[in-house]
Simulated assay, not measured.
Amino acid sequence: MKHTLRAFALGLLTATSLLAFAYSQQDLNEAKATELSKEDAKALLKEKGYVVLTENKWTKLTEEASSVKETNTNTQDKEETDQKATQDDTSESSKVNAYKLSIQEGMVPEDISQALAENNIIEDAEAFRQYLTENEFSRYIQIGEYTVVDQMSFLEIAKIITR
């Protein structure tokens, strides 16, 4: 038993010595060579489909987006007012069906298209779901409440719910 324990300890000492020797012989420049420069990192990110922005550019874009959002809200309010006025002027037979779509966290395109179909905004829920998926609108759906009417095209509805 004593010899077995000594042999085991000698094996551990030998393995540790070999690992220490290999580590000491490793070239430190080799490890630094794998670090990417800023340009290489940007190129790699762009290749993967990401956009690289400085903090200033990001701030400007978010400010522009918020101002566009406010403009769109004002425009939508005007359009809704115009639509309501138009609806009042039209006869009962050509009445436009409007629906306030509420998109909540966790909703998927199937839920949204089903809600629109149930409220007679669209005729085919599956076709609208496929449209959102195939045209990559499903990735950009935003949480919120949106007013949609039955005379809108799939593209118009998709643009509204993706802002």
Rank of each mutant, 00 (worst) to 15 (best):
E70V: 15
E63P: 04
A125Q: 05
L116H: 03
V108A: 08
Q130V: 10
S94K: 12
E79M: 08
Q130T: 14
R129C: 00
S94A: 11
K57Y: 08
E55W: 07
K69I: 05
V96T: 13
Q87H: 04
Y131W: 04
N72H: 11
Y99S: 06
M107G: 02
N72C: 04
L116W: 02
A98E: 10
V96S: 07
G49Y: 07
F128G: 02
S91N: 13
L116Y: 02
A115G: 04
K78C: 03
S67G: 01
N72T: 12
E64F: 04
L61G: 03
G49D: 12
E79K: 10
L53D: 06
P109L: 01
N56Q: 10
Q76H: 11
E79L: 13
L101E: 01
N74G: 06
Q130R: 15
E63S: 11
E134Q: 12
N119I: 03
P109D: 00
R129F: 01
V51E: 15
R129T: 12
E110S: 11
I103D: 01
E126P: 00
N119R: 02
D124R: 07
E63Y: 04
K78W: 07
N56Y: 06
S93T: 12
E55V: 14
Q114P: 00
Q83V: 07
L101Q: 03
E79F: 09
V52Y: 04
T75A: 08
T73K: 15
N119M: 02
A125L: 01
E123I: 06
N97V: 12
K100C: 00
S66L: 13
T81H: 05
K95C: 04
D88P: 00
N74E: 15
V108N: 11
R129Y: 01
S67W: 08
E118V: 03
L132H: 08
Q76M: 13
T81Y: 07
V108P: 01
N120G: 04
V68G: 05
T71Q: 14
E80V: 13
A115R: 06
E126A: 07
L53M: 11
T86Y: 13
Y50P: 10
F128I: 09
R129Q: 10
K84Q: 10
N74W: 08
T81K: 13
N72M: 14
E110C: 00
I122F: 00
D111K: 14
T90D: 10
E118W: 03
D111C: 05
S93L: 12
E92Q: 11
E63R: 12
T81R: 09
E80S: 11
E79H: 05
E123Y: 07
A117H: 06
